[in-house]
């Protein structure tokens, strides 16, 4: 678990691996109790965990509350 603030890309902030904040335009592709997938700025963010829940969401920002994180994947999408 990372306690220090970690900024992975211009739009993902991880305060710890229980609260993941994503800034900027994004699209919610998938949400289930175990996974959450967001698309934005040509990237895909996939989170898999024991429990994934969006604690807040508005136009510019989404905060995802995660418990027992099993997979955290950021992929650059192919530009078609």
């Amino acid at each position: 678990m990372l306690n220090n603030h970690l900024q992975l890309t211009p739009f993902i902030h991880i305060e710890d691996f229980q609260n993941i904040r994503v800034n900027g335009p994004f699209e919610l592709i998938m949400l289930s109790p175990y996974a959450c997938q967001l698309n934005g700025k040509g990237f895909t963010l996939l989170i898999e965990a024991g429990d994934a829940r969006i604690s807040s969401m508005n136009v510019e920002e989404v905060t995802i509350k995660v418990q027992d994180l099993t997979r955290f994947e950021l992929k650059k999408m192919d530009i078609v």
């Binding site: 919610l28 949400l31 829940r53 604690s55 807040s56 136009v59």
Partner: peptide
Amino acid sequence: YAFIQALKENKVYIIKLSKDKSGT
């Protein structure tokens, strides 16, 4: 998802969004 996306774009603040078998 389209509905939630539309809500987000219309500046609706969404809290505690979760999904399970019974729905969202």
